[in-house]
Write a protein that binds this DNA or RNA. Structure first.
Length: 262
DNA sequence: CTGGGGAGGGGGCCC
DNA sequence: AGGGCCCCCTCCCCA
């Protein structure tokens, strides 16, 4: 039963990256005392190529513009191999992939998962590092290719990008929602999310509070509940030292005026 | 208005 | 690589 990662890691540096546009309003809530593990904006400086991963409109991605300078993604770092991000149109709604609201259960086709590798010395692009290496050796007399280059995989439905295909695939599930509740038809990205949802139908509450008789269907909700039994709660106001069981309550507290004069 | 429960989402880690 | 599970978080709603 005990697993190594059951050890709680409060305030660890390992924070989710809530930095996407749809979460900007949430990010505004985050106090400075809760630092975010944001990706360094210049972190890709070590990258020497920006393979393009376009999942939903893969063929569009292969229609590379003649020059990387035509890339339309402003936040990406300057590079002679500027990323040709054809998958991150701001609306993410062009074409017909939105006709089902992105909820199609069609699984991603593995053969569409092609990151692109761009030559450092010309505008040519290849779908494999070995091909690029061969090109650079034969056409530019460079015996090595930056093998350390990490592909960047872009999500077609949003602006998120990942350095591993597995992470992208996991993220894409949040668009495809392949786990469907047999009772009500609601769709979820993960099987365990579906299981948690099914508990709302069955009434199962496997997570019990050791301090009272309450039980919960969700571990996170039990954890939040346990805070109510604690005298010193997890989230503290920086001004009045009052503590709260939830971040949202601290936010409400701040918004209601305690810290407004500061 | 505040506190708390319910439901759900995302990224990361381990197997 | 994928499944399972974790932690952390948010939003909504209600007492």
């Amino acid at each position: 039963m005990p697993r190594s990662f059951l050890v709680k890691k409060y305030y660890s540096n390992k924070k989710p990256c809530y930095r996407e546009s749809h979460l900007d309003s949430h990010a505004a809530y985050i106090p400075e005392s809760f630092p975010r593990a944001e990706l360094p904006p210049g972190d890709s400086s070590a990258l020497t190529c920006y393979p393009v991963f376009s999942f939903f409109n893969h063929m569009d991605s292969l229609s590379l513009p003649p020059s990387p300078t035509t890339a339309a993604s402003p936040p990406l770092p300057p590079s002679p191999l500027g990323p040709v991000d054809l998958s991150s149109s701001p609306s993410c709604s062009s074409g017909d992939e939105e006709e089902d609201g992105g909820r199609t259960s069609d699984p991603p086709s593995p053969e569409t998962l092609h990151p692109m590798f761009h030559c450092m010395y010309c505008s040519k692009s290849y779908n494999s590092l070995s091909t690029l290496s061969n090109h650079q050796m034969t056409q530019h007399q460079h015996s090595t290719v930056e093998i350390s280059a990490r592909p960047i995989f872009h999500c077609k439905h949003c602006t998120k990008e990942y350095t591993s295909l597995g992470a992208l695939k996991m993220h894409i599930r949040s668009h495809t929602l392949p786990c469907v509740c047999p009772t009500c038809g609601k769709a979820f990205s993960r099987p365990w999310l579906l299981r948690g949802h099914i508990r709302t139908h069955t009434g199962e509450r496997p997570f019990s509070c050791q301090h009272c008789n309450r039980a919960f269907a969700d571990r996170s909700n039990l954890r939040a509940h346990l805070q109510t039994h604690s005298e010193v709660k997890k989230y503290q106001c920086g001004s009045c030292s009052r503590t709260f069981s939830r971040m949202s309550l601290l936010h409400k507290h701040n918004a209601s005026g305690c810290c407004s004069t500061h």
